Amino acid sequence: MTIDVEEYFQIEAAHRIVKIEDWDRHESRVEQQMDLLLGLFAEHNIQATLFTLGWIAKKHPLMVRRFTELGHEVACHGNMHQRIHRLSKQTFALDLQTSKSRLEDVTGQPILGYRAPTWSLTQQTAWAADVIANAGFVYDASIFPTKHPQYGIPHAPTTPYTLNTPANKQLTEIPPLVWRITNNRNLPVAGGGYFRQFPLAMMKMGMRQAIKSRRPAVLYFHPWEFDKQQPKLPLGKLGKIRTYRGIRSAYNKLDRICRFGNHISHWQLMRDIAAATTTTTTPHFNFESTT
């Protein structure tokens, strides 16, 4: 169980609408959203991995500290929720350094994992894998093994693997859940819009398949996806559909997935999956640099 801890106005769909310098002018709702999710996880005895923005840790340090006090893992989602494609090596390294330091200062614990905003670690941003490794992260969770116009590497492994970076460094990569429907096609069923707009049976099928093949079923959600009262942003027609459709029923669906997960297996923290991966023989994937 993973959550990308960010505010509703920091979503990718709004990056041209809400400027970073205007973030402080918007109502913050992340604390009440996370209270809702933390309560649900406590009810189902679930420890989650919370990929948190450094910006969030700066604004809500007590909330982020509470994550660890409740037994959840805090991991890194970057500092300002910028897709890697918009950053240089230097600005990306600074973003990672700032966010990792802030999260470690607040939690008092080492931050081992990273997930790029909008799954933006792709073949086009292969250079970023070396920056992630150099920043001291043990594992990465940024590569979606599916085809999508903005992200994904369809031929990447669907099970945890060793990622070989362009500079011959190595990272443990833990991909999100996909439902393999043919030998060369993976359907994304891990969470987000797929969770809210697809029938819940599709996520369950993917979870069953993952358990059967002995790979983790890594799910992901965002706090704002369960907030029916959040202010609506002036998005375009497609952006509104992708962002807001399914929010009214999302909490009940997540409750059912929590119950289903407890029924078919057990929940783990990402750091524990990464530790187990380093002690076993895993596939390797060569991340080649592109220009």
Score class of each variant (00 low, 15 high):
187 L>G: 03
278 T>R: 15
162 T>V: 14
242 R>H: 11
111 I>G: 01
166 P>F: 06
212 K>F: 14
239 G>H: 05
57 A>K: 05
271 R>G: 01
12 E>K: 12
249 S>K: 14
11 I>T: 04
82 Q>V: 06
33 Q>T: 05
249 S>N: 12
160 P>I: 07
251 Y>D: 00
68 T>W: 03
262 N>D: 10
88 S>R: 08
290 T>M: 15
37 L>H: 01
58 K>W: 08
287 F>H: 07
263 H>Y: 15
207 M>K: 03
13 A>G: 05
265 S>G: 15
279 T>P: 09
2 T>H: 03
36 L>I: 08
69 E>N: 12
45 N>C: 10
255 D>A: 11
7 E>Y: 03
107 T>W: 03
124 Q>W: 10
104 E>R: 06
276 A>G: 06
209 Q>G: 06
283 P>Y: 10
222 H>E: 06
90 Q>E: 15
45 N>V: 13
177 L>R: 02
204 K>L: 09
206 G>S: 06
158 T>N: 12
146 T>E: 05
267 W>G: 01
147 K>L: 13
234 P>G: 07
175 P>L: 08
61 P>N: 02
176 P>M: 13
5 V>Q: 02
168 N>H: 12
281 T>W: 13
255 D>K: 12
215 R>P: 04
7 E>M: 04
283 P>N: 11
53 L>D: 02
158 T>C: 13
249 S>H: 15
244 Y>E: 01
148 H>V: 07
149 P>R: 03
251 Y>M: 11
272 D>Q: 14
41 F>P: 02
101 S>N: 12
29 R>A: 05
77 H>Q: 08
118 T>K: 11
252 N>E: 13
205 M>H: 08
71 G>R: 03
87 L>H: 00
269 L>D: 00
9 F>A: 01
200 L>Y: 02
222 H>C: 06
53 L>H: 02
96 L>N: 02
87 L>Y: 05
194 Y>R: 00
166 P>Q: 07
77 H>V: 07
161 Y>I: 11
233 L>C: 05
118 T>C: 14
86 R>V: 11
18 V>A: 09
61 P>S: 10
204 K>M: 14
45 N>E: 15
40 L>P: 04
138 V>A: 13
79 N>Y: 15
179 W>T: 02
38 L>V: 04
86 R>G: 12
161 Y>H: 13
18 V>P: 04
48 A>D: 01
167 A>K: 12
112 L>Q: 10
77 H>C: 07
36 L>G: 02
110 P>I: 00
4 D>Y: 01
144 F>Y: 13
159 T>G: 01
43 E>K: 14
272 D>K: 13
226 F>W: 09
225 E>Q: 10
270 M>C: 14
31 E>V: 12
120 S>M: 09
105 D>F: 09
280 T>A: 11
212 K>H: 14
137 F>V: 03
144 F>I: 08
86 R>L: 12
74 V>F: 05
12 E>M: 12
208 R>M: 13
199 P>C: 04
98 T>F: 07
87 L>M: 14
41 F>A: 05
256 R>P: 00
103 L>V: 08
48 A>S: 14
126 A>N: 06
187 L>D: 05
